[in-house]
Design a binder for these strands. Sequence first.
DNA 1: TGTACATCAGTGAACGCGCGTTCACTGATGTAC
DNA 2: TGTACATCAGTGAACGCGCGTTCACTGATGTAC
Lengths: 211, 211
Amino acid sequence: MTRVIATDGRIIGSRAKITRVRLLEATAKLLSENGALDLKVIDITREAATSPATFYQYFTDASDAILELAHQAGQDALSMLVHLDKSWDGPAGKQHAIAFTTEFVAHWQEHSAILRLRNLQAEEGDVAFRDLRGKAIQPFMKGLSSKIEAGQADGRISAHISSYATAAAIMAMLERLVAYLPEFNRRGVQPNEMIETLSCLILQILTGEKC
Amino acid sequence: MTRVIATDGRIIGSRAKITRVRLLEATAKLLSENGALDLKVIDITREAATSPATFYQYFTDASDAILELAHQAGQDALSMLVHLDKSWDGPAGKQHAIAFTTEFVAHWQEHSAILRLRNLQAEEGDVAFRDLRGKAIQPFMKGLSSKIEAGQADGRISAHISSYATAAAIMAMLERLVAYLPEFNRRGVQPNEMIETLSCLILQILTGEKC
DNA sequence: TGTACATCAGTGAACGCGCGTTCACTGATGTAC
DNA sequence: TGTACATCAGTGAACGCGCGTTCACTGATGTAC
């Protein structure tokens, strides 16, 4: 994934890789501190203590760097898929649901600035971001919808709902609920209470069992 | 809400109001066509066939206009609250759920560019947008959580989940699922199928009944 | 182990564009009599 | 009903800033012998 050639055709060695990473880190930092609307290449290079010309050796523009960050965030999410591979039936289901939810929420909290921007760009029609998002979400959608389909085959879940739409609804809940966390804080709802509730809902949707 | 005084202290008459509306419409149009990242005051005035100086008579800057649009969108959402005032118990519940879901989704589709941006700004810490969003969401949260609390009082819903977190989860689902609609299209999931599924899930969460 | 050369990596400094913003002005509309 | 004046509304044109982007250059590192 990491390109081996700079934008001007130079071959990138180990030293250059470090600089590139520094630029990416600076981008991520500014993104979460100041938001997407005033991200500037010049600020990134200031933050990374380098020069604008250097930035353009590694990225064609700011959105190129963001795309890379979004890609990395997507990769980082894959590890939690193990929780979807297991069966959530029976008493152990709750533990899996909680583990999955906890990790998903933590992942979104950690990468919130980038994931938010990725989604915004995707929704505004940027093809590169849309593809990236599609690929990042696909394994989750698959894991969730196969659980629903299994439940439908067993008759535990109503057969006339769309497994794909249901999986999307769960993803929507997970992705978006992180935005409510600061509000939860203000209202005195504890994070673990929120995780607990969310896990319950997801488990209920996926297995048809109340919890 | 609509201010009666221009930024330079002039009193705004009926003619000026029309110009102001034209500027707002132009802002909304550009926002949904080109996205938030390259919205420019100069483009807004070009679109509205007026001059930059005129824009600054009515708004202090672009985000001032967006704030106003977001406010209007919030007002526009209030009408669907009637569906939450009714009881969703019994066989009629499904109809109310579908009506509510349908209107909510339609509302988000209509104002997606602005609501998306409002939420982004709110999450990135802009106080004005956060307040606006808080106020817009509040009646929905209240309507949903009181349904949940009623269900908990009846014993139909587990008592150890947070009604607030559950309400937020439903809002999250509703708000975010609109982003999946284009993907649904591509996969051949019909919009009404999605509404149906979403209504089922919400009804199940709110009443504890499978549907 | 040292020297010469090739290649990798970084950047100073400048250019130019386009946007945000404002001011001083013109034009349009309303109102008093 | 017309005229004079006050007020509302709109804008041309300019300023200046700051950002994106590039080029030609210097400096650092690696490698051959």
